[in-house]
Design a protein around this nucleic acid. Structure first.
Lengths: 140, 140
DNA sequence: CTTGAAGCTGTAGCCGCTACAGCTCCCACC
DNA sequence: GGTGGGAGCTGTAGCGGCTACAGCTTCAAG
């Protein structure tokens, strides 16, 4: 039996199990606690962290939000809204729309980069000649 | 007369003028020197850096490469190829293509994010209801 | 009871800057 | 020739979001 709870009652998790189930690195979990977006969990007599399903949910929330490109600061706000219970769904909706606009800007930037690079690469045969049109283009 | 060269002979630049003409922050120029992608320039008797047109060209090269999303490490390689003079244009071409592939991956990632966020936002009226479908979706 | 994995704290490093503090230097003007 | 003040100097610390250690302690299976 590897679990500390003997499969009875609500399951509790060590940090390793939490990491595995949430998909978040152990070091990162402790980091999240340090910066205050994960709560300080109870500890065993010996000082080891003990988590429950609530912690797991919160951590998954954070991971999925990160995957969608929210900053930890934005996530902190989202969590705060959720924690308070008194959030208006409208605020969350608004943040999401703002974030979508952000992402669109980034995509536009990257597309511009790609176009310029494609043009440069197209002018460059890639042979052995000493003057490279790509380098020329960049220093001009 | 603000310039130190009296408009005769090749013009030399202080770090401030170099910054202005290259579009690169003064602090950043010194940083580039520290990490070795800009050479240590000659100094005045008093210890101030003195630049010339060559430095300006190199710095513009770096800035434009950064704008196109190359990392300083990639730029270091590009500069090394250019410095050696013995680069094959093919290597530059290859790096550029790899970088384009990188950018495409990033664009694809961002598009996925945007799609997911749009779907979540669409399910969210944004009203005052206590349960927010966006938050639900993220913790599930 | 032993042993080895898991967990603990605290610190330093990554990238690409940016921002200071607390100096020194340069040079235009009087 | 003096002086005032802007420009430049070095060195260090901070940002975000982790990651990687070193050097311990604790836990649980056998």
């Amino acid at each position: 039996m590897k679990h500390r709870d003997k499969e009875m009652g609500r399951s509790t998790l060590g940090i390793g199990a939490l990491s595995e189930r949430s998909g978040v690195n152990i070091e990162t979990i402790r980091y999240y606690e340090r910066i205050g977006i994960m709560p300080e969990p109870p500890r065993t007599a010996g000082g080891q962290r003990v988590y429950d399903a609530g912690h797991l949910g919160r951590l998954v929330f954070i991971r999925r939000s990160r995957e969608l490109g929210f900053s930890l600061d934005e996530i902190r706000t989202l969590l705060h809204l959720a924690d308070g219970g008194d959030y208006s769904c409208g605020q969350v909706h608004e943040m999401t729309l703002a974030h979508i606009a952000d992402i669109r800007r980034k995509i536009a930037d990257l597309r511009r980069m790609e176009r310029v690079l494609r043009e440069m690469a197209a002018n460059c045969a890639g042979g052995e000649m000493p003057e490279c049109p790509i380098l020329e283009a960049l220093s001009a």
